[in-house]
Every structure is written in C-alpha cells, then in structure tokens.
Design a protein around this nucleic acid. Structure first.
Lengths: 107, 107
DNA sequence: ACCATATAATACCAAATGGTTGAATACAAG
DNA sequence: CTTGTATTCAACCATTTGGTATTATATGGT
C-alpha cells in the first residue's frame, strides 16, 4: 500500500509534476529532466529523490548515467482517493447540500 | 480554474483529509471538526483556512458559529489530473516499458 | 451588565521545503 | 593517467509549515 501523504506531497509541486509529465514520453537521465527546468541540476536531483521515495519514479544506474522511469501506480491511489468524493462535486449534490444547510438554519 | 498546486498541497496533509472526510457527513462548525483531532482549536482553524483558500471548503458565519461545508469540485480536477496517467499505471504498460528499457540496455 | 462560548489574530517555535554553491564520487574517453 | 561528464553530497539560507500559547473579538445566554 502506497503512502498517500507522500504521493500527494510529491505531486503538489509543479516542478515535480512537470518531471512526471516528461517521463510519460519515456525514461530520461537526470540531465535530460533538468534541461528545461529553471533551476540547478542539484535541485532537480532533489526533486527526483522526492518522487523516488514517493514511489513515482524508479532509478536504474547504467554506467555514470541514472535513468529514471515513471512508475505511475501510486497515481492510481490518488485517483481512487479523489473519486471517493465524486458524489459531492456534482451540481445535484451541491443543491441538495444547500437545501439541508437552509433547512438547518430555519429550524 | 482551480489552482491544482493549492488543492494538492491542501489535501496532502492527513489532518486536512480527515476534515474533508468529516465534511462529507454534512456541514460542521470549527469546534465540531476540531473535537476528534489531537491538536488545538487554533491549529484546526489554520487547517480550515488552508482548505478554504484551496477552494475545498466554504464558510458561512451564523452568529458566533462558523459553519463549514465541503466544496468538492476541486477534487474533480485532482482526479482528472491523475487520470491522465491511467495508461501508465496498467500492468501491460509496465511490461512494455520494461521491454524498452531492456532493449536499450542491449543495443 | 456579566459570564461563557466560538472563533480568529498574533507571536512564537521547530522542522521541513526548495533553492543555492562548492566539493566529492564515479565513470568514460582520449 | 588525465580530463571531462553525470550525478550526488554537504553546508548553508530563506521561506513555509504545522504546531503551540496567549490575547482579542464577537456573540449568546442568564
């Protein structure tokens, strides 16, 4: 069971979401991931480690290069978690809730 | 358009997820939300404000009581975001990716 | 008026976060 | 063996975060 806290925290950062997005195009090295990002390689290295320890990214060392691959499974848990609230974000439910709120006020 | 950064960050905290969860049972006051939580009322008040500014919770003052209601719409964006990676978390894709990784190593 | 309740505001603190720079490590290539 | 490349590590820094305690404000009840 993946730690939802870590996954959500990892993915709350836009830089890390950008990295995740980039990895959908296939595995990449640290340098590749850092290239388009407006920060140091060391900073990107840190972000990668956060993603790694959240289980979103896997590393395979090939010589001096570290190849990162996306492991999207934990995102499934994010979706599953969010979908628990599906019934609460429909317009119908919003109106129903407003009705109860109003009812409570009147009683 | 809701700010995904703020929503994900808000929801990354287990206390705040607990609050969101509690609010699915209906609107509640700050004190109600704080009751089961192992921290000060002031701390809970802060958490609520984080949820509020992420657009997940709405406040209606009724006398001296502040009634909070869940506004789950931003969670739909979380689900939508996560579901973009659906094709990457299937076992099939994992195997395909492993194949390419291995192929790259051999060539 | 008085006291209790509900909540926010403020000031403070320790720890975590996101970034930097510079040094260290590991490997590849001439 | 030396040089260059890929990456991490370590120290540092500013800001944010999650919590506290205390004070302030608003409202309700008697």
């Amino acid at each position: 069971m993946t730690d939802l806290d870590a996954v959500l925290a990892a993915v709350a950062d836009p830089t890390r979401r950008a990295i995740v997005d980039r990895l959908t195009e296939g595995p990449a090295r640290v340098t590749d991931l850092a290239a388009p990002l407006p920060m140091t390689l060391a900073a990107v290295s840190k972000h990668i480690r956060v993603l790694e320890s959240a289980g979103l990214v896997r590393r395979s060392r090939q010589g001096r290069e570290h190849v990162l691959t996306l492991h999207a499974a934990p995102l499934r848990d994010v979706m599953t978690w969010a979908s628990r609230y599906e019934q609460y974000w429909t317009k119908r439910l919003d109106r129903l809730e407003a009705f109860f709120k109003d009812k409570r006020k009147r009683s």
